[in-house]
Design a protein around this nucleic acid. Structure first.
Lengths: 356, 356
DNA sequence: AGTAAAAATGACTTCGAATGCAACCCGGAT
DNA sequence: ATCCGGGTTGCATTCGAAGTCATTTTTACT
């Protein structure tokens, strides 16, 4: 028995006999369906296209046969000819944080609703974008949703290829770009005014990393609003948006001033949670009686009874929807000028701050 | 001057005059590069292929010109001919939980390392798989990583098209499949023996939903090990793996028995956290003095000072690596029989259980 | 019935890269 | 000089679906 199965897989030279049912065929193509249905390949293609010109009789017949044969249109082939991959690249970096998974989940839902699939680029570091960008190009994505920093050069690279980019919760200072953000300034204003009204006067801030536009906005807006109320000299310490740095942040604030502030404003919820824990378990303070702590984001765990963080919740669902809408718009009309959509956050009273 | 540029672009009818630099060209193709370099298209293709037969001189020249022209190979076109998309579908459902984002993050890293991209299918409900599966097929993915339930039919559909499937932390009872799991039985054994050794005798269990194989394994293994130690009549209440159901679970356990159990074994960390909070804030119990609580997973927040959950941490990174290795293997050799890889979890002492 | 308009259908081409095959080039051995 | 052979290179084909255009069929209306 010769058995020249050396190149058995290379193409598929009709595998001698593997399984009885499907005789080893690679894929059922529209040609196959066409032949079996006694129509042309174009006809099959049209039957699968919503608006396609095909008689009800044929469409029904073709669809039935396609079903029988287990035919599935090849999206790759379609993309090649239509120049539309229905793929949207999502660049995201802190998938292990509490905030971004929620974002990704919502983006995915919205994308599906708009008939797009998500090609995920989860970067270990924001700085890994460069190595990724080439991949993004290769896959001919219809658009890019960036929840990471992009340099001017990177943005240009996309522009050159007419690939629309929409930023999520960040943007570039000097260049007009498409972006969907939560109104950080407004959130900070609400927090500050509520806290000030409750009699707080000594504030401290636990900021995020310097390169986070959103983090910086929150901090600056907070300081500005405090200044408006005549509160000066607000100490700021830096964190990295994670639990430990929130905790360390409070210790640092304690070291910085003789008296601990009455309020710790944290640049996100996770740091607020770390801060609350530092207060309770390290400094033996009561929250909110001895120290008020507020955050930003409104992530899931911020509602846990153990912390009940007073925060500004981002309308992630609506932001994702806005992002996709904006994206589909730019895909349809590549010429349109950049647009920023800013949604208001929602004040969550929680219990981590004394508000009266 | 005839100038029959009528069909110059077909799709983008050359916006009258937009930017001077790139004259509206869609994409630079290998043909374009070839023409400019004075070589054939095949040559360009070969220059970009690692093992491709091309003289050093030509390769250098072509790559330089390609660079100049901003050429990027079209992965879509390549996939069509090679029948290899370098796309792996990841089916995942609870992206808003604390566990799966971590999984996704690790899977993404590993996939990149193996030269594959992730096509994300984040399902709002596990039951939405059916509507999704067709999409997965269309995109000609090289393989499917399933962190959701798949029915026998769905599995068959993939098998028929020779698309390898690897389950993440779940599998099917009666059908041999590729799967990477954490050893739940072993984890339960460790927890039970430590707790029993510390003198605990009255246990209660807060289980996950019935359709979670992993959840059920944890519960059954826990009960079995308890039986081994002579502990009978272990009350079990059901939760949904979320914070609130952990909280409600403890209340239900309290209602069920006259005396509250000494230990609440929760089917995951988030429920354990809910349970701890219910104990502390609703029932005014001290954890672990009055009630021991243990969980499974070892998600980030389980290490927070506020809870310090005693748990079995899953080696998510190594599991992801095993998943990808297994996957690449099946992609390379489609014929191989299914394989299950079971990795041991790591006991995390925490502080939510009295262990001595 | 007759004709114009509309709908349905098929042949053919296209998208962009990969690859089998044949042609070729060049140096070295005979 | 002839031939061999390995390394290069180009030609032509292929992947699977979609769209263009011409042709045929059906429908509608006078």
């Amino acid at each position: 028995m010769p058995r020249r199965k050396t190149i058995r897989e290379t193409v598929p030279p009709a595998t001698p006999s593997r399984r009885p049912e499907p005789p080893g065929r690679r894929h059922v193509t529209s040609h196959d369906v066409a032949r079996r249905a006694g129509v042309s390949q174009s006809a099959v293609s049209r039957c699968f296209k919503p608006g396609g010109s095909a008689s009800a009789k044929m469409r029904e017949r073709v669809l039935r046969i396609a079903e029988e044969m287990g035919y599935t249109p090849n999206a790759i082939a379609r993309s090649l000819i239509t120049r539309r991959s229905n793929l949207i690249a999502v660049l995201i970096s802190n998938l292990t944080s509490l905030y971004y998974p929620e974002v990704l989940s919502e983006l995915s839902n919205c994308a599906t609703a708009h008939g797009e699939r998500i090609l995920l680029f989860a970067l270990p570091q924001e700085s890994d974008v460069d190595r990724t960008i080439d991949q993004v190009m290769q896959y001919q994505v219809d658009g890019v949703i960036a929840a990471v920093r992009l340099s001017r050069q990177q943005l240009d690279a996309f522009a050159r290829r007419n690939i629309p980019v929409v930023f999520f919760n960040r943007y570039l200072r000097d260049i007009p770009v498409n972006a969907v953000c939560c109104d950080q300034e407004d959130g900070a204003r609400i927090l500050v005014s509520r806290l000030y009204a409750a009699g707080h006067r000594r504030f401290g801030i636990i900021a995020g990393p310097k390169d986070s536009v959103v983090g910086e906005e929150r901090v600056h807006a907070t300081i500005d609003r405090l200044n408006d109320h005549g509160v000066r000299h607000v100490p700021v310490v830096r964190g990295g948006f994670d639990y430990e740095s929130g905790r360390a942040g409070l210790h640092e604030l304690a070291r910085l001033a003789q008296r601990l502030p009455q309020v710790a404003v944290c640049a996100n919820d996770v740091m607020a949670i770390g801060c609350i824990d530092a207060a309770r378990y390290d400094l033996k303070l009561r929250v909110p009686e001895d120290l008020s702590v507020v955050g930003f984001d409104g992530v899931g765990p911020s509602t846990w009874e153990s912390h009940r963080v007073t925060t500004i919740r981002q309308p992630v669902g609506r932001m994702a929807e806005a992002t996709l809408t904006l994206m589909m718009d730019r895909i349809a009309n590549p010429g349109m000028p950049p647009e920023k959509r800013i949604l208001a956050g929602e004040f969550i009273e929680g219990r981590s701050a004394r508000l009266a």
